[in-house]
Amino acid sequence: MTSCHIAEEHIQKVAIFGGTHGNELTGVFLVKHWLENGAEIQRTGLEVKPFITNPRAVKKCTRYIDCDLNRIFDLENLGKKMSEDLPYEVRRAQEINHLFGPKDSEDSYDIIFDLHNTTSNMGCTLILEDSRNNFLIQMFHYIKTSLAPLPCYVYLIEHPSLKYATTRSIAKYPVGIEVGPQPQGVLRADILDQMRKMIKHALDFIHHFNEGKEFPPCAIEVYKIIEKVDYPRDENGEIAAIIHPNLQDQDWKPLHPGDPMFLTLDGKTIPLGGDCTVYPVFVNEAAYYEKKEAFAKTTKLTLNAKSIRCCLH
């Protein structure tokens, strides 16, 4: 018999989150649709729960009410004593943790798909938090293969000092899905179709896995975050240069030392320094102006996964 890495157990509980950011409308629209008619997301033997994560922000069509829901799922915020004085999103995070967690427990949901849009030209993107997770690498390989020839990129946010504390991190297997470009507060049919297909293929993978299909060893190309880059700023902290036209919409493309990065209003080009080629992502993302992030630098690498098969009882 072929030796293989056996994944822990079959997958039982899956959640699909929309509206973690209330103005990213593809996930909101799909989740609302699936709450009314969820036939397309159901798979035999699998509990799939669509869920609106930040209903107040969705109602106002804004990213958040008090603070970013997708950055506060750490033990400090989840452990705060519940009171009306807490920011709305912290209270909501505790409610979500109660419903789908608790985080880092045996009772937490197996998989959470968190649906997002970006204003950046990132196409279909899967966000991975753990480079050693054979199950998710296999799932992402399946999704990428199923979507081809449509490109699907994998963004690895594993980093020693950049801690995200994402909404989906309460699950055993957290999956971020990011599709763009799409303006905030807008629905685009092409973007919706791409996100819908990503979810379909992900659920198909889980179904095949649960039925005992063995997935042979595989490898995927990923883009691992190195650092986030702020806009150049003046002495008052105001933005002093904008994304250069040569960099705009060039997510995932190589940016070499000396290539144009920013452009000042008086026409001066600010190039990339250093001696390493990087791959920019979230270029000129609207939501990241407040976070002082013009783009993120990534490096390209390959992740390998062992063969996996479900432990059938």
Rank of each mutant, 00 (worst) to 15 (best):
F135D: 04
V58K: 02
N236M: 09
G19Y: 02
I16N: 04
T145R: 12
S146V: 07
D266I: 00
L128Q: 03
G273C: 09
H207T: 15
S108V: 12
P260M: 00
H207P: 03
T62R: 13
A57Q: 05
R43W: 04
H10F: 09
A165T: 13
S307G: 13
P87T: 09
G273L: 09
S131P: 14
P50C: 08
L78Y: 11
A219P: 00
K13I: 01
V283T: 06
H244C: 00
K228I: 10
F135R: 05
Y155F: 14
N304E: 14
E235N: 10
A240R: 11
D266Y: 00
K144W: 01
P183L: 05
V179Q: 05
D68Q: 03
G45T: 09
E129F: 02
L69W: 07
H201P: 04
H201K: 01
H207Q: 15
E8L: 14
V179P: 04
M82C: 14
T125P: 03
T118H: 01
R91G: 14
N54R: 02
E47W: 07
C310F: 08
A287Q: 13
Q94Y: 10
P232T: 03
G38R: 11
I206W: 06
D275F: 07
A287P: 10
C218I: 07
E24I: 05
T145Y: 07
S146H: 15
D104E: 12
A287C: 13
V28E: 06
A171R: 04
S105L: 11
I226N: 08
F205T: 03
Q12N: 15
K60T: 12
G258T: 09
G79Q: 14
E221G: 01
A7D: 15
G19P: 00
D234G: 09
D74L: 10
A240M: 12
D114M: 00
E40S: 00
L136M: 08
N284I: 04
N23R: 05
K59D: 12
M139F: 01
Q194D: 06
H201L: 09
M261K: 03
D251H: 01
V90N: 09
N97Q: 12
D193N: 12
P174D: 06
K80P: 14
A39H: 12
S161M: 10
W252N: 02
I112S: 05
V48W: 03
P217T: 06
G258Y: 06
T53R: 03
T264I: 04
E76K: 12
K253V: 08
D234S: 09
R43C: 03
G176A: 14
P271I: 07
G237I: 05
K32T: 08
G258R: 07
D193L: 12
H208W: 09
V90E: 10
I11C: 08
R63H: 08
G45I: 04
T298C: 15
G274V: 04
C276Q: 15
E89N: 03
L162T: 15
T62E: 13
T62C: 13
I6T: 15
L255S: 00
E40W: 00
Y164A: 15
F29K: 15
V48Y: 04
K13M: 00
P216E: 09
N70G: 11
T119E: 08
E214Q: 09
I191P: 00
N77K: 12
R132L: 08
I111Y: 02
K13Y: 01
Y142G: 03
G274W: 03
E178C: 15
F73N: 10
A148R: 09
F113G: 03
D193Q: 11
D230Q: 14
L99Q: 12
G22C: 07
E290T: 10
V58M: 09
F135H: 00
S161G: 13
E293C: 15
P50T: 08
V48R: 03
K292H: 10
E285S: 14
N23V: 05
C310K: 15
D74P: 11
H5E: 15
V281E: 03
D190P: 03
L150N: 11
E8A: 12
L247V: 08
I177M: 13
A241T: 00
K144P: 05
P174R: 15
S146R: 14
P160F: 07
T118D: 02
I206R: 06
E95N: 09
K197W: 09
C311N: 14
F215L: 05
R92A: 10
H313V: 15
A165R: 14
R71C: 13
A305F: 04
L25V: 12
L147S: 01
I96Y: 06
C152R: 00
K213E: 12
Q182D: 00
I157N: 15
V14F: 02
Y289I: 13
V186P: 04
V28R: 10
L136P: 04
V283Q: 05
K60H: 13
A296K: 10
S3V: 08
R43P: 06
K228L: 09
E95R: 12
P280T: 00
E9L: 06
H141V: 02
H10K: 15
E235I: 08
T277V: 13
A57D: 02
E227G: 11
L30V: 03
N97C: 11
H207Y: 12
Y64L: 10
R168D: 08
S131A: 13
T298I: 00
I41D: 02
F51W: 08
K228A: 09
T44Q: 14
F73Q: 11
K144G: 00
T26Q: 04
K228S: 10
P257S: 00
K224I: 03
A148T: 08
D249Q: 02
F17W: 11
G212C: 02
D107N: 13
V154A: 04
H21G: 07
M198K: 06
A240W: 02
T118Q: 04
D266P: 00
P280Y: 05
T145H: 10
A148K: 10
G123S: 01
R233C: 11
G237L: 00
G38C: 11
D259E: 09
Y173G: 02
S108A: 14
H159G: 13
D190F: 04
R92W: 05
K144H: 01
K253C: 08
K80Y: 12
R92L: 11
V14S: 04
A7W: 11
R92F: 04
F282M: 11
P151W: 05
L303Y: 02
L78M: 12
G22S: 09
P87K: 10
N133K: 00
S83D: 13
Y88N: 07
E89L: 01
Q138H: 08
V58N: 03
